[in-house]
Nucleic acid binder design. Structure first.
Lengths: 223, 223
DNA sequence: ATGAATTAAAAAATTAACAATATTACGCTT
DNA sequence: AAGCGTAATATTGTTAATTTTTTAATTCAT
């Protein structure tokens, strides 16, 4: 079952979306920073229409604020807002996992292991944080997808892109990755055992633990 | 504190969004129906650019599917998908309500009562289903907002617009409104009592009961 | 006939020019 | 000098025309 990579013809809008999203998530564009349509259009060698469409799309993702006639700014998240996002993730993801566990098949475990190995090698090889982050959500989604809840998964993915800036920050500045990897392993083994209460509790601690680390980081930076 | 209505300068894009959203939610545009950019542009007397921007916005709302180079279609929801949406609502809204109840102030109860009265008169005066639906979410949000979870509330609102087509269907074709109103009254009084477990349980039954009614309706229509 | 290749038509994506709106800077009045 | 109004500028919103892509219809070979 070799997945042939489809020839993807990306539209300009999609290219702009990806470029801007990455810049916002990486911190290159800071919260509150205005996003001038013409400047972006010039930088990326496109006209302003695809830029505008990209901006409304990013607004929907919660990464950008787009006010009529005033223009777009990158969204700045307060500690309270980040807290809210993580707690909502904990609620929904625990529910997803509980629904998924009874349906998990050996193939799913294999896939999860596979992603975990990629994650570990990505870390060792000093890969970019961006790809670590992507693999991380891939691991989680791979467990959740057995829940057969496509829309819920979409919501979770949306929350994740919003959290991503802070997750990256934490991974970069603290020793977050080894902890996460240990927890991933335990989570996977609890899933294999079909131990729903233990698995969901670990997952919640996994998510809320990251939140605590991020909070500590932010408070420290403010000093 | 007379709220002066702000002079709103609606952009064409916003007008198109509202027009299309209403047509989809009312059922005038059916699921799966293609949305031709030029046709819409002509009908609404705008150029195609605002139409395109409206379509990407509606895609983000989950009302429209927008495939590159192929165009947009209204989203068709299966029974399974509607079930998922309602169950996710039940999960999140119960959490919101539980967090809100300890913070509810007399002013909130007053506002809620107010909305309830409007709801009842809207029903008696045979107002449009659209306005009933809007007041309905207003009532719920008025209880939830004390939870201080703006982003979560956004997610819930998003889920609600997706459910709206089916809620309207149910209200139109069954005697759903009196039941909903009775449940609203009980819910409000449980909130006043500060009885969190009873309130959240009632809320979940309120939401999942509507789901059951809708399912019955859909199955009946298929016969 | 069946199926691949080519062409014609339709629709979407993009651009560049134009109109409307908001922000800023400046001068005026008090 | 502070506050208000007006003009200049920058930025956004919109349109109409152009380019690109997809879909279908047609042709040609097997």
């Amino acid at each position: 079952m070799t997945n042939i990579a489809p020839i993807i013809h990306k539209t300009r809008t999609q290219l702009v979306v990806e470029a801007l999203r990455e810049r916002i998530l990486s911190g290159e564009i800071k919260g509150g920073e205005p996003l001038r349509q013409s400047a972006i259009a010039e930088q990326l060698n496109v006209s302003r229409i695809p830029v505008r469409e990209a901006l409304v799309q990013l607004e929907a993702e919660g990464l950008v604020n787009f006010e009529p006639h005033k223009g777009a700014t990158a969204i700045a998240l307060s500690v309270e807002q980040v807290t809210e996002l993580f707690q909502l993730r904990a609620l929904i993801e625990a529910d997803l996992l509980a629904r998924a566990i009874p349906n998990l098949k050996p193939a799913d475990f294999e896939e999860a292991e596979n992603v975990l190995e990629q994650l570990e090698s990505a870390f060792k090889q000093q890969h970019s944080i961006a790809s670590w982050s992507e693999l991380n959500t891939q691991f989680h989604n791979c467990l959740y997808k057995a829940a057969n809840r496509p829309h819920t998964l979409d919501v979770v993915d949306g929350l994740n892109t919003n959290c991503d800036r802070y997750i990256r920050l934490q991974l970069l500045l603290t020793g977050g990755i080894p902890i996460a990897e240990r927890e991933h392993r335990s989570l996977l083994s609890l899933c294999k055992q079909g131990n729903i209460p233990a698995a969901t509790e670990l997952l919640q601690n996994h998510i809320l633990g990251a939140l605590t680390a991020i909070k500590a980081l932010v408070i420290q930076q403010l000093k």
